[in-house]
Amino acid sequence: MEKILVSSRGVNLYYDSARVLKDITFDVMEKQVTALIGPSGCGKSSFLRCINRMNDFIPSARVEGEILVGGSNIYAGGVDVIALRRNVGMVFQKPNPFPMSIYDNVAYGPRLHGVKQKDRLDETVKQSLVGAALWDEVKDKLKTPGTGLSGGQQQRLCIARAIATEPEILLMDEPTSALDPMATARIEELVRELKKRYTVVIVTHNMQQAARISDRTAFFLMGDLVEYDATPKMFTSPEDKRTEDYITGRFG
């Protein structure tokens, strides 16, 4: 039984007077992988950043419409943005571990939210690293700098850091674009594993990646949501001509 977890209702995003997203309306299903695809500048990353309100940091950005997460509008007045971000984790394009130890990277979120007991932190760090398929590689060097790992390992460390606050939703903004094919394959495998416990929304430039790992795909073009459907249908018989042109590589 599919259940809606994130629901976008007529979302418009403006940077000053420029309208970057136009009336975006669609639902993200719980414990599925939803891919956002489209050419550069189409608004897919901007939309992703609406879901955890990271656009708040851009002074010129303004959001209209509603995004419901678990039924409540995150753009309503008085929303606790800190609690929201704890529930909606994010992994960025470039692996960005903090310049601290592997352990402290993963423990960062739980510590922010008040976990102090060492045994609880130890357990969370271990579970998160296991969950990010990194534990076996780093269990003997948890005190060494996270920045000393390879690019792919750093990105898995960032995933471990994101799931350490036990979010429901994981946002991934082109998480493999800075990685080599081997590291990319490992992350893709991990994403398939992650959806057993988390709802994943992933922005990707790579259409094969969207086809391989996602359950549903949303195609963005110049701020519009052109088409949104089950991934197999999107890649075999899209309704819209523009979707077809894009996935067959005619532009973008």
Binding site: I82, R85, M90, F98, P99, Y108, G109, L112
Partner: peptide, 27 residues
């Protein structure tokens, strides 16, 4: 201090002062 660090910290639910104290100042 790279913006990446701040983004990562905010995305984990840190406040501005927590981000400054735990990430920006040490870096």
């Amino acid at each position: 201090v790279p913006k990446d660090y701040r983004d990562a910290s905010y995305a984990l639910g840190a406040s501005k002062w927590q981000t400054i104290r735990k990430v920006v100042l040490p870096a």
